[in-house]
């Protein structure tokens, strides 16, 4: 009994120390923020029902494809990534999956006023306009036209988007993911010669340089972010970067909750690749030591019987 009492005291003081340096200290070091809801409540819904056929026409006439590719509709990108980054700062996204990845309310808002929807008003203004111009309509009711474009994007979007696809579209034009061979200009192909390698690296450096001019800094490689930030933080950050890192150059990208989870899943697949292995091996090792402890206890009882 005395031993259990001592054990209780040891455990108690260990837990107090643990609580103090981990949950308590971290709650004091990091400002509290509200968890992500993905409701995008600051955006007023258009209240119109879009027509995808009309949307397709407007999309073709409004000049969207002058910058954006829609590969699923055989509309290629007008420029390669490096040239696009030289013109716009960052390579504009392909819109094939946009209807599936982004919140429809957000898509409408971003078409009407991109900088505002992205919460980048502190960086862009009349003197320094956002690379994508606001959409002022093609002559009819503006809100109806926007609703039509959104309906069109939703109509061409695939039902299912792979986690990697979600990351590449929403994050991968600013962030490298080198542990999965993803770079802002695309995956690094198998290189046969040093020249090819140098050419790829040069393109990557040029793109990074343009990105730096555009954002003021180079966004970090995200390979290990699942370990350094964790699931919850990344989720909350994606929903509204300004809420957590006030003044950051990172835009709000307007992913739906489902698409955000896909991005985090991808980051987990890359940065914590052995998670499944860890979780399946854990119980076996614990079981081994439980059996070890039981056998050791039986042996101890046998040996100590004589000495008591």
């Amino acid at each position: 009994m005395r031993e259990l009492k001592i054990l209780g005291v040891v455990i108690l003081f260990t837990l107090i120390t643990y609580w103090g340096v981990e949950p308590f200290a971290h709650s004091q070091m990091h400002a509290h923020h509200e968890p992500a809801t993905f409701k995008y409540e600051d955006i007023t819904p258009l209240g119109k029902k879009g027509n995808p056929q009309r949307g397709a026409e407007i999309f073709a006439n409004a000049g969207c494809t002058g910058c954006h590719s829609v590969k699923s509709q055989n509309l290629p990108a007008p420029m390669d990534p490096v040239a696009a980054s030289a013109s716009y700062g960052v390579n504009p996204p392909d819109l094939s999956d946009a209807g599936a990845l982004y919140d429809p309310k957000y898509l409408a808002a971003v078409i009407k006023n991109p900088a505002h929807a992205m919460k980048l008003d502190h960086k862009f203004n009349e003197n320094r306009p956002f690379p994508m111009p606001n959409f002022y309509g093609v002559g009819g009711d503006l809100d109806q036209e926007v609703a039509d474009i959104v309906a069109y994007l939703q109509s061409i979007a695939p039902k299912e988007v792979e986690p990697k696809e979600a990351f590449v579209n929403a994050c991968g034009r600013c962030h490298d993911m080198k542990y999965d061979n993803w770079y802002v200009i695309g995956p690094k192909p198998k290189m046969d010669t040093e020249l090819e390698e140098a050419q790829f690296n040069l393109k990557h450096a040029e793109y990074q340089e343009n990105l730096k001019k555009y954002l003021g800094t180079n966004p970090p490689d995200l390979s290990m972010y699942i370990r350094s930030r964790g699931h919850e933080y990344i989720r909350d950050f994606i929903e509204d970067p300004q809420k957590i890192l006030h003044g950051t150059a990172m835009p709000r990208v307007g992913l739906t909750e489902e698409a955000t989870e896909k991005v985090v899943t991808y980051m987990e697949n890359v940065g914590d690749r052995k998670k499944e292995k860890r979780e399946s091996l854990g119980p076996l090792v614990l079981l081994y030591f439980i059996i070890f402890a039981l056998l050791a206890y039986a042996w101890k009882q046998k040996v100590w019987r004589d000495v008591h």
Partner: peptide, 22 residues
């Protein structure tokens, strides 16, 4: 005699340790 008790304590400790590892 001494080690038989130690191994039991060690066994319990290793359960705790590997719980943390995994």
């Amino acid at each position: 005699v001494f080690i038989s008790k130690d191994l039991f304590v060690l066994g319990v400790f290793m359960i705790f340790y590997f719980y943390l590892v995994f």
